Amino acid sequence: MVESVLLAGGGTAGHVNPLLAVADELRRRDPGLRVTVLGTATGLEADLVPARGYPLVHVPRVPLPRRPGADWLRLPGRLRAAVRAAGEAIDANGVQVVVGFGGYVATPAYIAARRRGVPVVVHEQNARPGLANRLGSRWARSVAVTFPGTPLPGAQVTGMPLRPEIAALVDARARDSVGERVSAARELGLDPSLPTLLVTGGSLGALSLNTAVSTASGDLLSAGLQVLHLTGRGKGQAVRDRVATGQGDPDGATLPTRYQVREYLDRMHLALAVADVVVCRSGAGTVSELAALGLPAVYVPLPIGNGEQRLNAAPVVQAGGGLLVEDADLTPDWVRWTLVPLMTDDERLAGMRRAAATAGVTDGAARVADLVEQTR
């Protein structure tokens, strides 16, 4: 029986949220389990982990350079210090299993565990794995992945461990989806009877999504739709002005009641409870949550980076639960001629909901916890 585990991952919500979901599941199964989290002092984990009631041990941030340069020269010293800190956390807590979720702190945790003969479980969020998990998977006892086809040795598809509020929404919708929609709409000031489009580019927003959808606001509203547009911090006024002007107000002063603009929503599960279609980026967490909820989506991958967002969306799109649109192709005309007809086609939307659900995983945290418990 496992009595003490170390969970390593941090820096971004993509690493921290699944880590906390697995920690909660392990603690739910065994309230006496000793759970220690390894992270940095500056990432999201610095706030989220202690707030959830888990001790956080700090390690130095060790970015792995992708190209030769000054960071390569500093890497050995940084890595030694981080591996030393990770090893001290393993020793001090009598850790029997190390669970890594990628990111800067995972590499030193993997190395320290290997030196001590402590088994490792790796969870990779993205379809294209990061450097840390590519390293850790070489000697991991178990490798869990979110998406089929992720190129890691011995990978088992567990899906994404869902955030508690999303897991709770999955259960609530299974019991009473209509009641959950009505309750969420009431809290958000929306009409639960209207087809609802949710637009979100994440906390930072996405200019292309904001521009394309708000420019076509007249077509969306003329079709009898309702829009909840989350613009990202500091990006709300430009969207409000565009929507108001599009409705015949030259001063951009009046916003239609069926087009709600917010910069940020801290209770995102309410938006998902009322949405019929979501226009969004295709980060691993977003794709996994929407599929688990059976929500049709228009996925617009980031046009920069290593292409992982396109790969993340591929399984649910291939299943028929979403559409993939390149960033440059998401135009007001695309919204008018493709999105509006989709949102007014009840039969097609019903088919997409069923298809999305077939690609979704609702028990990812439990699947990863099983691997941890089986590791000795």
Rank of each mutant, 00 (worst) to 15 (best):
G248E: 01
T231L: 00
R141V: 04
T257H: 15
A46F: 09
Q237A: 12
A355E: 06
R61H: 13
E45Y: 00
Q318G: 14
P55H: 09
D363K: 07
A184I: 05
L265I: 12
P256M: 10
V368Q: 00
G322Q: 06
D363R: 05
L190T: 02
S214I: 07
D333C: 11
V62M: 05
W337R: 14
R173C: 10
V118W: 03
L221G: 05
G14Y: 02
A85M: 13
L56Y: 01
L293K: 01
L190P: 00
N210R: 08
D91Q: 15
R134W: 10
Y54I: 06
A86C: 09
G234T: 04
W139N: 12
D345E: 10
V372L: 01
L230C: 06
Y299A: 12
Y259V: 08
R52K: 15
G322T: 03
G283H: 05
V340S: 02
L339R: 04
E373S: 14
S203L: 14
A21F: 05
I111Q: 13
D266Q: 15
S217R: 10
G360C: 13
A365P: 01
V37T: 04
L131Q: 11
P192Q: 04
L230N: 08
T36K: 13
M1W: 06
G136I: 00
A13I: 04
T344R: 13
L207N: 14
A132H: 11
N312I: 00
D171I: 14
S214H: 05
P250Y: 04
R367K: 03
R175H: 09
A275T: 07
E25F: 05
V22I: 07
V335A: 01
R28D: 14
H58W: 09
V143M: 08
G103S: 10
L272I: 13
S183V: 10
P301R: 06
F147P: 03
T150I: 12
G248Y: 00
R367V: 00
A284V: 03
G320C: 08
G94Q: 03
A184P: 06
L221D: 08
G11R: 01
G285H: 08
S217K: 06
V2T: 12
L38M: 03
A127T: 10
L220R: 08
L26S: 00
A313C: 00
R61W: 08
L33T: 08
D333W: 06
A284C: 07
T344G: 05
V121Y: 02
G102L: 14
V316S: 02
R141Q: 09
V227D: 04
Y104S: 11
P60Y: 09
A365G: 03
L73M: 12
T344M: 04
E347D: 15
T331V: 08
T257K: 12
V22D: 07
R267H: 12
V182P: 01
D191T: 03
L265M: 08
L194F: 08
P50M: 15
L135S: 07
A155K: 09
D176W: 04
A13Y: 06
A85L: 12
A184E: 02
D333N: 11
R240A: 05
R336P: 00
V157H: 00
A297L: 01
P151G: 09
R267W: 13
W337D: 15
A23S: 06
G32W: 09
L290Y: 04
L230A: 09
